[in-house]
């Protein structure tokens, strides 16, 4: 057993690109569910919009209808900052598209529509027709769109080491920027939730009819929450794509959404630090079980007829599932939740 490698690899996973992406996605879900009570089970759709908007625009640009001969402005790869800025209106557009028909209905309808929308979007991204028209890359997805980011990266091409874990300058840069994004988004959510605006959001979570009877335009507030949380989720998807230098449709399956939910529940919904702490713990467990089980099977410490190098990957999700089940039983409010607040839910 190579303990230094196990420990350094685990730590790197906990702060790595994946962890950042899911923490951002969970900050968005926290806005939706933790503060507004919206059951958004389609956060993967927002992440995919973020990833693909950036990948398409920064990678190839999009064919613009009517610009007949020769590549025009839109047909060339966009500068990285323009592609990143385009993520905001695209995520807003998706939120409006999902919200307008569903936010007036009961909460469970939003859950159904969002989970379906995320799957529709993923399937559409695989479709060859859409690839022809918008360069979505089909089932293989997109690569080679991160050169703009590499261009501004002061550490480009350098090698780093977290104790025994090597990583490159690109990862280092994305991790740094990613954690800054997490800090900025968390600060924004904190500022919003201490304001009267946040108070209205929480009142909608508690009882939207009461909020209505007190003169609050519930639909508008829900929509604002959906847009803000969706944008943060899209940023998560963008970081995910840039960090991995690839955007593939199957990265944004329902599993993406459920991971985001899992680490939010783990950390405590309705808390600013909930997604961050939940994300760190979630990826600590995932990272540790992965590298530990990999080492243990390699050193034949586990019964080989049960656990081998082909199936240990599944085992780690069983451990996470067990941990989550234990948490829900023994600490339903999450790690940072307030037990008193949670207790009222059963009434």
């Amino acid at each position: 057993m190579n303990w230094p490698l196990i420990i350094s690899n685990t730590l790197f996973t906990a702060i790595g690109v994946q962890a950042i992406a899911f923490i951002l996605a969970a900050i968005g879900v926290n806005m939706h569910f933790g503060y507004t009570g919206l059951l958004n089970f389609g956060q993967a759709a927002f992440a995919a919009i973020g990833a693909y908007t950036f990948a398409i625009l920064a990678g190839t640009g999009i064919p613009w209808p009517g610009s007949g001969d020769g590549p025009g402005f839109f047909e060339n790869p966009w500068p990285w900052w323009a592609a990143a800025l385009a993520v905001l209106p695209m995520a807003t557009f998706l939120a409006l598209l999902l919200g307008v028909p569903t936010l007036r209905l009961r909460a469970d309808y939003l859950a159904i529509v969002t989970i379906a929308a995320a799957e529709i979007l993923r399937q559409a991204l695989i479709a060859p027709k859409l690839d022809e028209r918008f360069n979505t890359g089909g089932a293989d997805g997109l690569q080679g769109f991160s050169s703009g980011i590499e261009g501004i990266n002061p550490w480009n091409g350098q090698e780093f080491r977290l104790w025994k874990q090597p990583f490159d300058g690109h990862q280092a840069f994305v991790i740094l920027v990613g954690w800054i994004l997490i800090a900025v988004c968390s600060a924004l959510v904190w500022l919003l939730m201490r304001s009267p605006w946040g108070r209205v959001l929480k009142s909608i979570r508690e009882d939207e009819d009461a909020a209505r009877s007190l003169g609050k335009n519930v639909f508008a507030y829900k929509m604002q929450s959906l847009v803000i949380g969706g944008i943060v989720g899209a940023l998560g998807g963008m970081v995910f794509a840039i960090g991995g230098r690839a955007a593939a449709p199957n990265d944004y399956s329902t599993a993406f959404t459920f991971f985001a939910w899992t680490l939010l529940i783990l950390g405590g919904a309705g808390r600013i630090k909930g997604p961050i702490v939940g994300g760190l713990i979630f990826w600590l467990i995932i990272g540790f079980t992965e590298v530990f089980l990999s080492q243990a099977t390699r050193n034949a410490l586990l019964p080989g007829w049960r656990v081998n190098e082909n199936n240990f990957g599944l085992l780690r999700f069983m451990f996470v599932g067990l941990g989550l089940a234990a948490l829900v039983v023994f600490r339903p409010q999450g790690i940072f939740g307030d037990r008193r607040e949670q207790a009222f839910d059963v009434r």
Partner: peptide, 26 residues
């Protein structure tokens, strides 16, 4: 609104709050 304090319940009732717009709230 059970998971808001009594005072927050009360404050919610006031109309025309500037801080209830998302940008001013920041």
């Amino acid at each position: 609104l059970t998971r808001l304090s009594v005072l927050e319940n009360m404050k919610l009732g006031a109309l025309d709050q500037r801080g209830e717009s998302v940008f001013a709230g920041l």
